[in-house]
Amino acid sequence: MEAVLESQDVDHLSRRKIVAWIIFGALFVALMLCVAYYFMVYRYYQSTDNAYVQADVTWLMPKISGEVIQLKVKDNQFVKQGDVLALIDHRDYQARYDQARSMVDLKTAAIAIHTENEKSAQFSIEEALSNVNAAQAELGRLEADYLRYQQLLGDGVITRQRFETIESQYVSARAQLARSQAMLNTAKAQYGSVQAGRAQIMADLNNAKATVNLYQVDLNAAKLMAPVSGNIGSLSIQLGSRVTPQSRVLAIIPENSVFVEANFKETQIEKMHKGQKVQVKLDAYPNLTYRGIIDSFSPASGATFSMMPSDNATGNFNKVVQRIPIRIVLEPHPQIELVKPGMSVIAKVDLRS
């Protein structure tokens, strides 16, 4: 009986040793697998959970103030570039625009009248020039007669009365030439004055056209149009709301504009570079995996751009590992629409890529 009990104790101890060796072997294999995984996989990856989805948000701000008389969109609605989102009361701007257009028409009519005045002044110059030429021809004829009759008077061929008649005609022709030249000078001066007036009218016309363009800009600004295609968000106006210039009325998240901003520790980026592949997991959808690539590195740490950066020159210095923001562009994915700005993600960079 004692021999049987001793045999059972030996078998029990043997089984315990076998189990112990099996457990030890399993632990050893697991350790070896962990070491192998570290050297073959893990050490080639850098990851962080300090990462968030971002987007190039486009804020829409009106250029004019007024009351919203039409609102054609609602929150979360998709819009295309160029769609009219809202309409601001533009009656005042329309009236100013119409008034400016009337002023342009008035100045254009003044230019037309001025053009006719220039033509009339040119005709006056041509008429005065013709009169000068005619007076010069008449003076030349009478001057020849005057000299000839003067010689005849000296020879006693004609009477003094006849000579004085020719002399008076000659003097009158000289006076007529002087009057014609004076009229020509007057016509030229009038033409110069008319031309000087054209410059003033043209300046007024250009000023009126500039005013029209200015009011046209204000009139067009009454229509709030989508600058990009995307989804509406943060809609802060309703029908009848009063808006002012530079006030944010809504935001548009452009389509295909989401990206991931991952804040890696400065000790992690030694082997990182642009173009490396990144695995991204959303906290909201842990079963989905997205792919991306490193697009760019921030030119400075996140603390540098904070409103109140820490002053490390003080006596109370504690070294803190800084974070470097890295922009990650996501690759196309069947469920990319699930990625929303502001979501938390885990980013893992493949250093071998």
Rank of each mutant, 00 (worst) to 15 (best):
H114Q: 11
N131I: 13
T267W: 04
K107S: 06
S124H: 04
Q54M: 13
L13K: 09
L106I: 13
L129D: 13
M307S: 15
C34I: 14
A313M: 06
V68Q: 01
A199E: 11
N287E: 14
I22M: 01
T314H: 15
Y42D: 07
R91H: 13
A100W: 02
V349Q: 13
P332W: 12
N117W: 03
K274C: 12
T267C: 02
K271R: 11
D75V: 00
M272E: 01
P325T: 05
D11P: 03
K274V: 07
S298L: 04
S247Q: 15
G156I: 03
Q276P: 10
N131H: 11
D218V: 11
L250V: 13
V10E: 13
T48S: 10
P62K: 00
I237H: 07
K271L: 13
W21Y: 06
K17V: 14
L282E: 01
N207Y: 08
Q94G: 04
Y191V: 05
S310W: 02
V260D: 01
I336S: 07
L330V: 03
P245F: 00
G315A: 06
P334M: 09
G82A: 00
A30L: 07
E270R: 05
T267K: 08
K63M: 13
N231A: 10
Q195W: 11
K80F: 08
S65M: 07
H333G: 00
I64S: 00
G82W: 09
P299C: 01
S7H: 14
W59R: 15
V132L: 00
N76D: 14
F264Y: 12
E337S: 09
L214T: 06
M61Y: 10
L31W: 01
A112Y: 08
G140W: 07
M272F: 11
R174M: 09
N318A: 06
R242I: 06
D56T: 03
A203Q: 14
Q181M: 07
Y149D: 10
Y45I: 08
S247W: 07
M61V: 11
L330P: 04
R15C: 08
A110F: 02
L5A: 14
V79L: 05
C34E: 11
M202H: 12
Y290W: 02
S296H: 00
L282G: 05
E138I: 01
S296V: 04
